[in-house]
Simulated scan of single mutants.
Amino acid sequence: MPIIVVPQGAEYKAVCRGLTSKQSVIPIPVGSQAVSRYLEACQDKLWNPQAKVLVMGLCGSLRDRFQVGDIVLYSECVYQTKVQQCDRSFTAQLYAHLQDKVCLVKGLTSDRVVCSAKEKLHLSEISKADVVDMEGFATLEFFQQAGVEVAMVRVVSDDSRHDIPDLTSAINSDGSLQPLPLAISMIRQPIAATRLIKGSLRGLKVLEEVTAFLFAKQNV
């Protein structure tokens, strides 16, 4: 049974709701630097070369074809000019189980929240990526350097055609969210905030469902 690694907060809670048996779930901070620091500090507890790691969570779409609620399976993840491949065997196993429920994608990890539709289009053009997250590359890099097989399943929570609020200022250096700056960012852009909330709720529901599907049948 793989160890699940998922961003702390709502995503972690959604994954836990989807599990019916005891399963090792590790909550990680938001943001690449915070993730790297956290995993390095906890590596003695996390070290288990015999285990596989399944990274789960939400992501943003960079292309029209990927809509809110779509389940995606990473083949690789890019950060700036660097590329990390997901484990081919583990990824193929997940793809076989999920079949028509999932799309194979190239992911991009960003240091900040990608909030405008214009920037999403730009990033998709220069990176050739399909979706964007804030933790994927750092997590892949850490575990793969430790010789652990890693795969990544995420759910789209915002599409490529609309803006979402800029939440970058609400994220602490330790990867936690600050409630007041978060609220201010949402209030400043109420339409975008409503869209983000609806997309997140939909994405979290699907994240819970795909977790239940994968682990209830011991598919991974």
Rank of each mutant, 00 (worst) to 15 (best):
S200H: 02
A92I: 01
V132L: 02
Y79E: 11
A51H: 04
L201E: 14
R17D: 11
V15S: 09
S110E: 03
P27A: 05
G31L: 11
V6P: 08
L140D: 09
V148W: 01
M56Y: 00
V114L: 03
V155S: 00
G147N: 06
N172Q: 11
Q178E: 13
G57K: 09
I197D: 14
L94S: 00
L167N: 07
D70F: 05
T194F: 10
D133P: 03
M56N: 04
F90Y: 07
G199R: 05
S169K: 14
V220R: 07
D44K: 14
S176V: 10
S61L: 00
E135D: 09
L54Q: 00
V83N: 08
N219Q: 06
S124L: 10
A129Y: 01
D100P: 01
S169H: 14
L182T: 05
P179Q: 12
H122Y: 13
D100Y: 05
L39C: 11
G203W: 09
S75W: 00
V155G: 00
V150S: 04
I171K: 02
L123S: 05
R195I: 11
Q178P: 12
M186G: 15
S89G: 12
I4N: 04
E149H: 06
V156Q: 10
D130Q: 02
Q85I: 06
V210Y: 06
C86T: 05
K217Q: 15
R154Q: 02
F90D: 01
S160T: 04
A92P: 09
G199A: 09
G57A: 09
C16Q: 15
D166M: 05
P7T: 07
N219C: 08
A92D: 07
I164E: 03
I184C: 15
V15K: 04
D111L: 03
I3R: 14
Q189H: 12
L104A: 04
V55P: 11
E119A: 04
T168V: 09
L58M: 13
V68A: 07
R161Q: 12
T81F: 15
L19W: 01
L98A: 11
V5W: 05
V155N: 00
Q84R: 15
C103Q: 03
V220I: 04
V220M: 09
G136M: 06
M186N: 12
N219M: 06
L58W: 03
Q8M: 14
D100S: 14
T81I: 13
R112V: 12
C59R: 07
G199Q: 10
E209Y: 12
L214R: 02
S21V: 14
P49Q: 12
G147W: 07
K22D: 13
V132N: 02
Q85W: 10
V35P: 06
E209H: 14
D166Y: 11
Q145D: 15
V210N: 09
N219I: 01
N48Q: 14
D44M: 13
S61M: 06
V5F: 06
S176F: 04
V114I: 02
H97E: 12
P181E: 06
Q93C: 00
V25H: 03
F66K: 00
D158K: 05
I26W: 02
L140Y: 08
A193G: 08
Q43W: 10
M152A: 00
S32Y: 00
A10C: 09
K205F: 12
K22R: 13
S124K: 01
S185I: 06
A129L: 03
A14D: 07
I71A: 14
